[in-house]
């Protein structure tokens, strides 16, 4: 891009005349308050209906998944490895040699504990587009799932879920942060 002759025109459009309480950002109480008024708002075809209805969005209610490995016990032949995260190269889903042993240990554990279930979560760094990264996270999760399966874990014990670049562990924007975010997390859930 042409950087020469870059000219900045600042348009101070709106002089600061504001009362703090009157910012037009969405208000905290919007959803709860709107729940009561939503049905009548939706029926009302006159102009304010849209605005109120826009505010009355349903609140997403995620179901909690236990992050603690409740079903994990110390019995059995294999111990549960402490390492639950492995890392990847940029735009790549190849399992690095350094992580094969820890994955093999997870596979042994799963094989000796057939009631244990895991979610294999694939993650990416922020570079590149979001939906492509969803595909890449899926590919990473499935590479791990396949490796675990070849090492003896049961297919039904594992679910692959991609989070793409949506859940970084490091919110930085440099190589160090990106390296931490290109990962697969093995999450045990008790059943």
């Amino acid at each position: 891009m042409v950087k020469q002759g870059l000219k900045r025109v600042t348009m101070a459009l709106l002089p600061v005349l504001v009362l703090a309480a009157c910012s037009s950002a969405p208000k905290k109480g919007d959803t709860s308050g709107a729940e009561q008024s939503a049905p009548s708002a939706a029926a009302d075809e006159s102009t304010p209906a849209q605005t109120r209805a826009l505010d009355s969005a349903p609140v997403a209610q995620p179901k909690a998944i236990s992050e603690t490995p409740a079903a994990v016990t110390k019995g059995g032949d294999a111990a549960l490895p402490a390492t639950r995260v492995i890392y990847f190269d940029y735009d790549d889903a190849t399992i690095r040699a350094e992580f094969r042993e820890v994955l093999a240990a997870h596979a042994r554990y799963l094989a000796s504990h057939p009631n244990v279930r895991i979610t294999v979560q694939g993650h990416c760094d922020e570079r590149g587009t979001r939906e492509y990264n969803m595909g890449l996270g899926e590919r990473r999760a499935n590479a791990v799932k396949k490796f675990l399966s070849l090492q003896g874990a049961g297919g039904k014990q594992m679910e692959a879920v991609s989070f793409g670049e949506e859940r970084p562990v490091d919110s930085g924007h440099d190589d160090a942060a990106w390296a931490k975010n290109r990962r697969v997390e093995i999450v045990y859930s008790g059943r």
Partner: peptide, 19 residues
Amino acid sequence: WLMLVRPAAADLTIEITQG
């Protein structure tokens, strides 16, 4: 009304990169 609705920190910066 103008006083109530004008939001804070709303300086819009327009960059004109070339003629």
